[in-house]
């Protein structure tokens, strides 16, 4: 009944092959089959954003994507955001701005924010708020998260200048 399907993808730059049931979500595949537990489950119906990953540079909630849909795709998860041993500027600015409390939503926010900065290097406060409206945080009230994203954007621009 549960015949498994072979899926070939690229995850965080590395070719990755796995077998999954057709009903398993990408979130389940990442967490339970591949051990990439940095991507979190908060609601399993696409409303909290804790499971946000990039799929061919598109922001998706991985709970609403089937594992089999990842065939041939490039997936980026929180585990692929740091550049080797060096943190991504967003990761550094989240730490410096105390932009996390419990930390469960943090991977989703960082992945979503990276996608924003990749296409809009100098976002306004409103643009950041709109982009991140898909990600719920219950601890911080968002203030320090918005500041962290702004600071990371500024630092990345200085580096690129």
């Amino acid at each position: 009944m549960h015949t498994k399907v072979r899926v070939q993808t690229t995850i965080n730059g590395e070719p990755q092959e796995f077998l999954c049931e057709p009903r398993q979500s990408l979130l389940e595949c990442l967490r339970d089959l591949l051990g990439l537990t940095g991507t979190k489950e908060g609601c399993n119906d696409g409303n909290c954003g804790a499971c946000t990953v990039l799929m061919d540079d598109r922001v998706v909630t991985s709970c609403l994507v089937l594992g089999v849909e990842a065939q041939g795709c490039q997936i980026t998860t929180i585990e692929g955001i740091a550049r080797g041993s060096e943190l991504h500027p967003l990761q550094r600015s989240f730490l410096e701005n105390a932009a996390l409390q419990c930390g469960i939503c943090t991977p989703g926010f960082i992945v979503a924010a990276k996608a924003l900065l990749d296409q809009q290097p100098n976002p306004s406060e409103d643009e950041i708020r709109l982009w991140l409206a898909n990600n719920l945080c219950r601890c911080t009230g968002y203030d320090k998260i918005i500041r962290a994203v702004k600071q990371a954007a500024e630092q990345m621009q200085e580096v690129n200048a």
């Binding site: 979190k40 929180i78 585990e79 740091a82 730490l95 996390l100 930390g103 943090t106 960082i110």
Partner: peptide, 19 residues
């Protein structure tokens, strides 16, 4: 100061109950 568990929480390494 930067929180001690911070790096694990921004890199996805921190292990929560469901992990």
């Amino acid at each position: 100061p930067i929180r001690h568990d911070g790096v694990d929480k921004v890199t996805g390494r921190a292990l929560y109950g469901a992990d």
